[in-house]
């Protein structure tokens, strides 16, 4: 049974697109059939982070409006063959998306994939509510920082009231993904700790992604970090989070960067 997952946060720049790409790739790398769908109409970036920006021909709006078939718009990943991308439109505005149109496309995707991961735009406007409306579960991406935690609280409120599940009186499954976490700063009292954020937001924890230079490197080269550097701390954290999404019981740790002999000798990598 296919599962629709929305990756959301309210605040921009906390790592929704990076997390969509990384979780999607990690699930696909374990053999699951995954499609990542960009809902950020007008400001699409999932294609760029996935390294597929030059392969976009048709997009979600073309499919919603019947100008293209779903199969024409889906972009199959060249590295993992069970991973696909459905890009957003860069030129149209978000009013071109309708609730019925989106529901129809998602129903069609349910036939083809095990996981449909929707990358929500920032904010709490129509784009964000459309991305979450049909979801079975939500990943709330949060930085250990006051404005991000506040916005996540607001988004959790919307997940519990403005989604199809909430309207039917069903419970929305919500997971917290804490990103850009710095264990040392949290220990020194300079940054909100995991427990602080969990106590405030009171939703279960999916994973802790450590602040890592490798995340920027991955987006620079257009590869999800679980593909570009699976052994990195952030890469391993995303693999663990993906396993938890599949129901595996993985002990919660914050992975640390492993340094090889060359790394120890030269301090940091050049490339």
């Amino acid at each position: 049974m296919a599962k629709i997952l929305v990756v959301t946060s309210g605040k921009g720049g906390v790592g929704k697109t990076t997390s969509t790409a990384s979780l999607g790739a990690a699930l696909a790398q374990s053999g699951q059939r995954v499609v990542v769908v960009d809902f950020d109409v007008g400001l699409r970036n999932l294609d760029l982070v996935m390294g597929a920006e030059r392969r976009v021909v048709f997009d979600l709006i073309n499919v919603v409006q019947g100008d293209a078939k779903l199969a024409q718009a889906l972009i199959r990943d060249k590295r993992v063959d069970t991973l696909s991308l459905l890009p957003a439109s860069q030129t149209r505005d978000k009013d071109a998306l309708t609730e019925e149109g989106v529901a129809k496309v998602l129903a069609e995707l349910r036939e083809k994939f095990d996981w449909i991961i929707c990358d929500s735009p920032a904010g709490i406007e129509k784009g964000a509510t459309l991305a979450m409306y049909n979801a079975d579960a939500a990943v709330v991406v949060t930085n250990p920082e006051v404005s991000s935690v506040r916005d996540s609280d607001r988004i959790i409120g919307l997940l519990d009231s403005k989604t199809k599940r909430a309207e039917k009186g069903e419970r929305m499954e919500k997971h917290l993904l804490l990103t850009r976490y710095d264990t040392a700063r949290a220990a020194r009292g300079e940054m909100l700790k995991t427990d602080d954020v969990l106590e405030i937001l009171s939703i279960p924890l999916l994973g802790i992604i450590p602040e890592s230079e490798e995340v920027l490197r991955a987006s620079n080269i257009g590869a999800p970090i679980t593909l570009s550097n699976p052994a990195s701390a952030a890469g391993r954290a995303y693999f663990d989070a993906a396993k938890r999404l599949r129901g595996e019981d993985i002990p919660m740790t914050v992975p640390v960067e492993r340094r090889g002999l060359m790394g120890k000798l030269f301090g940091r990598r050049v490339a």
């Binding site: 909100l192 700790k193 602080d196």
Partner: peptide, 19 residues
């Protein structure tokens, strides 16, 4: 240095109100 407890307290008060 220890600004995190301040952040935590401010958030708890603010969110109690906003909720």
């Amino acid at each position: 240095r220890r600004s995190a407890p301040v952040a935590r307290e401010r958030l708890q008060i603010l969110l109690a109100h906003e909720r």
